[in-house]
């Protein structure tokens, strides 16, 4: 299937007093129609900045997308006029956020907020938009949807608000839904409900999803492919099964080892990765993970490994073949 979205060489900087923070350092990824892509990584690795840069939502200044292309339907999102990109946002690519408590305008009713994308992009009248909003709320499982249109955000619980946010993101039937850690602020049972809801809606509506999270567990059951990010780079990209069965990058291995597993028979201590993520005041010239890596050798500290293709779909950026523990080649 054709690529719906193709991002190449995306680089984003943020100006700070001491210079520039290199938040994203040349990210390549693509998304096929109807596909679910997981982006995984710890805080500050550039997951959110990547998608925000793509939609041109990072505040300028201090942020700046310095390089790259993001081709969507034959057009570069990064070169569109402000008006063009505005009509992509919410209509064709929409987003849901981490914190459903603060992402709603406290003084507008839920109905008006859910109906807003329809008013902006489809030019529907207030009444038609509200009817459609009620349908959407019913679809995401809000009971009494029609009655609740006139409620204010504070009258909804966290899980309900996340459902409403999903409804709002999907009102215009977008091609791509970007979910930026949508379950992080919710408790575990609600998380499961939201994930199930998104799965159901994906199957019904057939949109592609980019799901950003640091929770490998959620991604396992949801995504088709996973990109692992570290230091503003994608360091491993693979379909979900091989990634979990045989992670190749030391960082991915570390992440998976740091999680408890249901199917584990013997007891073990959870392993943590030593050290801290790098502060990206310069563009990494060596492997950003090298200082924390148990496999690292001289080359890792001198050159940044490119993302190389191994057996078809599995890509990894590492000088070391972690299966054997020896340098590649």
């Amino acid at each position: 299937m054709a690529d719906l979205l193709n991002v190449q060489g995306l680089e984003t900087h943020f100006r700070v007093r001491e210079g520039y923070v290199h938040a994203v350092n040349g990210v390549d990824f693509h998304l096929k129609e109807g596909e679910t892509l997981g982006i995984v990584g710890e805080s500050g690795c550039g997951k959110s900045v990547t998608v925000m840069s793509m939609l041109r939502l990072i505040p300028v200044p201090p942020g700046k997308v310095v390089a790259g292309t993001a081709m969507y339907q034959g057009k570069d999102l990064l070169k569109m006029s402000p008006d063009e990109i505005r009509h992509i946002r919410g209509a064709q690519i929409s987003m849901i956020f981490q914190d459903p408590m603060t992402s709603f305008n406290p003084v507008l009713t839920i109905g008006r907020q859910v109906a807003e994308p329809l008013e902006i992009h489809m030019g529907l009248s207030r009444k038609a938009a509200l009817n459609r909003a009620a349908e959407m709320l019913a679809m995401v499982g809000i009971p009494n949807a029609k009655d609740r249109l006139n409620d204010y955000p504070h009258q909804f619980s966290g899980g309900m608000r996340q459902r409403v946010m999903i409804a709002m993101a999907l009102t215009c039937s977008p091609q791509i839904l970007i979910a930026d850690e949508p379950t992080t602020a919710l408790d575990v049972t609600i998380q499961a409900q939201i994930v199930d809801l998104v799965k159901r809606l994906r199957d019904e509506l057939g949109m592609a999803i980019i799901w950003i999270t640091h929770d490998l567990g959620i991604i396992a059951g949801l995504a088709d492919r996973v990109n692992v990010m570290y230091g503003g780079l994608i360091i491993e990209a693979a379909p979900v099964k091989p990634l979990y069965a045989a992670p190749l990058h030391p960082y991915t291995q570390g992440l998976l080892h740091s999680l408890p597993r249901m199917d584990e028979t013997e007891q073990r201590r959870l392993v943590s990765i030593d050290g801290l993520p790098p502060v990206l005041m310069t563009k990494p010239t060596s492997c950003p993970f090298a200082p924390r890596c148990t496999f690292a050798y001289e080359r890792c500290l001198q050159e940044n490994p490119p993302l190389i293709n191994l057996d078809g779909n599995h890509q990894v950026a590492c000088w070391v073949d972690t299966k054997t523990g020896r340098p590649r080649e």
Partner: peptide
């Protein structure tokens, strides 16, 4: 955050100003 959310659904500056910020 809700202003950012409004941006992601494609609201124009004017709309954000009058619909989202001013009532607050």
């Amino acid at each position: 955050e809700f202003v950012e959310a409004a941006r992601t659904i494609g609201s124009s500056d004017l709309r954000i100003m009058f619909r989202h910020i001013l009532p607050n």
